[in-house]
Design a binder for these strands. Sequence first.
DNA 1: TGAAACTACGAAAACGTATTCGAAAACATC
DNA 2: GATGTTTTCGAATACGTTTTCGTAGTTTCA
Lengths: 339, 339
Amino acid sequence: MVTIKDISKKCGVSPATVSKALNGYDDISEETIRLVRQTASELNYTPNAAARLLKTSISHNIGVLFVDDTMSGLTHEYFSYILNSVKEEAEISGYDITFISQKLGKRKMSFLQHCLYRNCDGVVIASVNFDSKAVHELINSDVPVVTIDYAFDNVSSVLSDNVEGAYELTSYLLNMGHRKIGYIFGEQTSVTNKRLVGFNKALKEHGVSIPPEYMVQGRYHDAEVVREATARLMDLPDPPTAIMFPDDISFLGGQAELTRRGLRIPEDISVCGYDGINLSGLLQPPLTTWHQDADRIGKESVRKLIETIEHRSTCAAEQIMVSGQLVSGSSVREWDEKM
Amino acid sequence: MVTIKDISKKCGVSPATVSKALNGYDDISEETIRLVRQTASELNYTPNAAARLLKTSISHNIGVLFVDDTMSGLTHEYFSYILNSVKEEAEISGYDITFISQKLGKRKMSFLQHCLYRNCDGVVIASVNFDSKAVHELINSDVPVVTIDYAFDNVSSVLSDNVEGAYELTSYLLNMGHRKIGYIFGEQTSVTNKRLVGFNKALKEHGVSIPPEYMVQGRYHDAEVVREATARLMDLPDPPTAIMFPDDISFLGGQAELTRRGLRIPEDISVCGYDGINLSGLLQPPLTTWHQDADRIGKESVRKLIETIEHRSTCAAEQIMVSGQLVSGSSVREWDEKM
DNA sequence: TGAAACTACGAAAACGTATTCGAAAACATC
DNA sequence: GATGTTTTCGAATACGTTTTCGTAGTTTCA
């Protein structure tokens, strides 16, 4: 490995001068700067991030907390898009990313310890159980943090606007004439709560009320559970004319159940999903859904995190809301009560 | 940050002794070991990976090359599963992973430079353009490498058995009575070549020959291109009775085209995909496809990589073939020529 | 011309850790 | 009690870099 010393010898200057020349200090003559940089590239010099970190205590490395026991963020399309944009945005700013986990080889370490071990300058947290002790320890530590889709009051967060999403989808159904709308929601999380708020808000605005049986518990990304939930809805004496699903993937479970009953989408029943992943436009029929702007969510969280890292004192915690967009497929048809 | 020195002061021993006590050297008395470890955990000590690396030149960090300009590995379900298992297997062995890219902030660096910069102990490479100069530079360097789904002769690789996959799928169709089998293949890569080999092998074994028009070029994961390819096949005067698609996602494009033409799957035409991602079982009808064992592919590549890292001299390059599995959905029906 | 100011560089220390080698202390052996 | 052996520890050094501060040499300016 070629180091700063090799360059210094070849150039006949001190290591200190080489370092300064490479880092653009202004007390080095133009001439030596040229010489040093020249030989550096001749020798194919690559700086050593670890050594640099040791001196500066800046790792240019941000941790990502995307997975824990209960959820598998990486294979979740929405989160994989977020991860992808987190990665790209980080690289643009000169940061690498490291996955933070609770075990490393034999030693089990807390999330915080893992961050300290790898000297992460900051962490973005998503798709974890935000109630866990380990996450709280990290949140309350000194390392800068940005959370995604969950808000703590002392740290910054980037939130997909779930109230808006559910509100817009529900309004869309209502405007298409539907009055009997079934809602299959995911497990009890703040995201789910927000969506229920949006759902109810839209109903209220239209003066529509929904019997409690129309709201059934499902589970994000679980086709089987949602299939059962769909069956429960359709078994009602007066079943809904439209169903809102927890997300696009779990909708596929519902679709299977509806097909099994000989119901056609959208002729016999209207449906919409959530997430607006790539897939949804490819389905037959294309799914009406709510596109969460995963790309912007990722970018914003890294932007905010780096801002926090680099101006730690002056940077206030902030809640950043990211809007989504209705993607109208053809899984919803106009509904006339008199039919 | 609490360091080894803090512990040494509190215990009244030298830093050297603390280091040894923590790392289990055998020239430290049981008693001091207990004392040191005790206070270490009291002070909530976390070792500093960078400092350790600087001394040992072992980073316990492996690079992953999963993305380049042309492909987006992270959002590709097959690769996201591989990544997930790479990550898990690495963590079990005490390694973190770092994404290797060609740009970091202002400086653009080659893949190799990025690895050196972060002191990666090794790299696993997948889903990139293996012909590129930058990849070759890395392959031919001193850093241990394992490639996925592409074989170089001087480095180890883990390969999904694509000959087997295409062979088994084709045989399945043939055994179901199909003789007119359309094959939409992906862009020209070694993976595609292997599948064509398997395809032809099965045909040959059954003494079946296929007109050249039945083999059309598509594109992995591109629903639109594959939709067009499907249209071309079905526009033939004597269209196939079964179509093999490049992968499960691009099949959705084909499905759209078939539906548009009023063809039902599998009554009017049989289809199969490739990859066997989660999704395929949820489709209507469930897709017959070939499941690539992404989980094992990820695990094997990390296992082999770490073996190479830790026994560099004695560890020979090796080609590891990973078998897949036919997933029979209900997208293929028996076909009788006389019908 | 002397002082002041500026330019360009280097010596040295530090970041936190691992490891070699020597040495003191304790113990055993005859 | 002299010698040898084992046990237990610490001093010192190095890894590759950044950064402070000092200084020699040069220029400016009154």
